[in-house]
Amino acid sequence: MTIDGLLVYVLFAVGLALIGFGAGWFVDAAVNISKRYGIPKAVIGATIVSFATTAPEFLVSFMAALNGQPDMAIGNAVGSTICNIGIAIGFIVMLKTVVVDDKSFNIKALLMLLAGGVLFLLSWIGGDITKTDGLILLVIFVVYIAYTYWDQKKEPKKPEDDAPAPRTGIWAKIKIKDSYLDVLMFLVGAIFVVGGSRLVVTNGTEIATQLGIPELIISLTLISIGTSLPEIITAITSFRKGYQDLSVGNIVGANILDITMILGVSAMFVDLPVNGQLLRYDFVVMMLLFVLVAFFGYRKKITRWQGALIALVYVVYLVGLFVYVPSLGA
Rank of each mutant, 00 (worst) to 15 (best):
T132F: 12
I85Y: 09
A146G: 01
L121G: 06
K108T: 07
S247T: 09
Y147K: 00
G116C: 09
E155D: 08
G242Q: 07
G134D: 01
W305T: 07
D282H: 15
F295G: 06
L211P: 10
G204T: 04
Y281E: 05
R240A: 14
E160S: 00
I213Q: 14
V139L: 08
G320V: 05
L312F: 15
P326T: 01
A208I: 02
V316D: 06
A115E: 01
D133N: 11
Q152D: 03
I251C: 00
F120E: 06
G169K: 11
I82D: 10
L114W: 09
N106C: 02
A55E: 07
T202M: 13
L318T: 07
A29P: 06
A208W: 08
S219M: 08
I310R: 05
A146T: 12
V200H: 06
I259W: 01
K35H: 05
T81M: 12
T260N: 06
G329K: 03
A65Y: 09
G5M: 11
G196T: 09
T227V: 14
F141I: 00
G126E: 12
F322P: 04
W171S: 08
G264F: 11
K108M: 12
D4T: 12
T148S: 02
G90P: 09
D28I: 15
E206A: 15
S238C: 15
V270R: 11
F295R: 06
F322N: 07
F290S: 07
D151T: 05
L6D: 04
L135P: 05
I39N: 06
V285F: 12
L6Y: 13
G242V: 04
R198T: 12
Y243A: 13
A42R: 00
L135A: 14
L95D: 03
G116A: 04
R280A: 10
A146W: 11
G249M: 10
A267Q: 08
L279N: 08
L7F: 14
L187T: 11
S179T: 14
V252L: 09
D128K: 10
L229W: 14
I218A: 02
V188E: 03
W150H: 11
M261I: 11
L138Y: 02
G79L: 10
L66H: 11
L288R: 04
V291M: 08
I207Q: 07
I82L: 11
I48M: 11
G226I: 01
L16R: 01
L220R: 13
T130I: 05
M286Q: 10
D162A: 10
L222E: 07
Y281T: 09
I225W: 03
R240F: 13
V252E: 03
Q210K: 14
V291W: 04
S224Q: 00
R198H: 15
Y243S: 13
G253K: 06
Q277W: 14
T237M: 14
W25C: 10
D28V: 15
T205A: 15
G253I: 09
A165R: 15
